[in-house]
């Protein structure tokens, strides 16, 4: 078990499951009225940040960009700017 957790692929998969679980839990909390007012907006922003984190895990581990620093940096910057655009559109709405 401890050895398995040292495997970057297994760690990436576990992170993706955990981040997806947190996103869904936040959305359920909003839809059941457990969050209200600014809490809904903060929850939405957190969901977008979690999506950005998941996309980064897929790029670096599943697609192997962790071994290509130049491209990894480029994709991370582009993805970060895109996530900021989505966050801006969400906050305006």
């Amino acid at each position: 078990m401890a050895r398995a957790l040292h495997d970057p692929l297994i760690r990436a998969w576990a992170w993706l499951l955990a981040l997806s679980g947190i996103s869904t839990a936040l959305a359920v909390a909003v839809s059941k009225g457990l969050l209200s007012g600014a809490g809904v907006t903060i929850g939405g922003a957190a969901i977008l940040i979690l999506a950005w984190a998941k996309a980064n895990v897929i790029l670096s581990r599943y697609l192997g960009l962790a071994q290509a620093p130049f491209w990894h940096r480029g994709f991370r910057i582009t993805l970060g700017l895109y996530a900021a655009l989505l966050l801006g559109l969400y906050l305006i709405g």
């Binding site: 977008l48 897929i58 697609l63």
Partner: peptide, 23 residues
């Protein structure tokens, strides 16, 4: 082939929160 599959995966992790979760 796996790279194409990961792209499909990557799109879903962005699509899922925007369409299904954001309020």
């Amino acid at each position: 082939g796996a790279a194409f599959w990961h792209m499909v995966d990557l799109v879903w992790v962005l699509l899922f929160p925007v369409i299904y979760l954001l309020r």
